Simulated scan of single mutants.
Amino acid sequence: MKRRKHKASGETNLGFQIAPMIDVVFVIMLYFMVMAGAVQKENSHNTKLPGTETRDDVAEETPDEIAVRIEEDGQVYLNDDPLDAPGNAPLKELLFNLAQLKSSSDAAKSKVLVTIYAADSAQYQRVIDVLDVLGQVSIENVTFQAGAE
């Protein structure tokens, strides 16, 4: 019988092992694929500096801002002034005041910007009534603010 020689553990040459290298490459690739979804795009914000336009041009671009607030009980406020009773559906006072504001802003060649502040539990019909009035006086620049002002 022949005796086998056992090599010491330091003398064993396994060669170049590719399997662990492939595993590491796949883990790194998986990391970059997951992190690519978390990249946020940056948006540019164009800002005009003052002093580059004439006074007449600035007056045309500055909108007249109006706040319309609708409370839970249906009371409508125009710039903190209460108009029309909560049960009135036509909103005649609001229509009259907005028509005057629209005509004065048209005479001044400025836009009208209306922000509607509706309470969280305000009735949708009351918001629709206010939008109808805005449509009657041809005010197109309308924004909404959630919750109270």
Results as ranks from 00 to 15, higher is better:
35 M>N: 12
34 V>E: 04
79 N>G: 09
50 P>A: 09
116 I>W: 07
101 L>F: 01
2 K>I: 06
58 V>F: 09
91 L>W: 00
26 F>D: 10
99 A>L: 01
127 V>T: 12
125 Q>S: 11
148 A>F: 00
74 G>K: 05
37 G>I: 06
51 G>E: 04
107 A>W: 05
60 E>C: 04
95 L>K: 11
102 K>Y: 04
120 D>R: 05
29 M>N: 08
55 R>H: 10
37 G>A: 02
90 P>L: 03
126 R>A: 01
140 E>M: 04
17 Q>N: 08
112 V>Y: 00
45 H>K: 12
23 D>H: 10
14 L>I: 07
8 A>W: 07
92 K>P: 13
16 F>A: 07
65 E>A: 13
74 G>S: 06
13 N>V: 13
80 D>A: 14
18 I>T: 13
120 D>H: 01
44 S>M: 08
56 D>M: 12
142 V>P: 03
146 A>Y: 07
1 M>D: 02
95 L>P: 00
24 V>G: 07
53 E>W: 09
133 V>F: 01
85 A>Q: 13
21 M>S: 11
100 Q>C: 00
111 K>V: 03
114 V>L: 08
90 P>E: 12
75 Q>M: 10
144 F>H: 00
112 V>M: 01
7 K>T: 08
1 M>G: 10
123 Q>Y: 01
118 A>T: 06
111 K>I: 02
92 K>A: 11
123 Q>P: 06
28 I>Y: 06
71 E>R: 11
53 E>T: 13
71 E>S: 09
61 E>A: 12
12 T>W: 15
50 P>M: 05
35 M>Q: 15
102 K>L: 02
112 V>L: 04
36 A>Y: 12
143 T>H: 05
64 D>V: 09
5 K>V: 02
74 G>I: 10
116 I>R: 10
146 A>R: 13
106 D>H: 00
75 Q>W: 02
68 V>T: 03
133 V>S: 01
128 I>Y: 12
144 F>M: 04
72 E>V: 12
42 E>I: 08
87 G>M: 01
110 S>K: 15
123 Q>R: 06
105 S>M: 05
131 L>M: 15
64 D>Q: 15
96 F>S: 15
63 P>V: 05
81 D>F: 05
7 K>H: 11
67 A>V: 08
31 Y>L: 10
24 V>L: 13
44 S>K: 10
107 A>F: 09
15 G>N: 07
147 G>C: 03
63 P>D: 04
69 R>S: 15
20 P>R: 04
94 L>H: 03
82 P>S: 08
139 I>S: 02
12 T>C: 04
144 F>K: 01
120 D>W: 06
25 V>K: 07
125 Q>T: 11
70 I>L: 06
21 M>Q: 11
74 G>Q: 08
105 S>T: 09
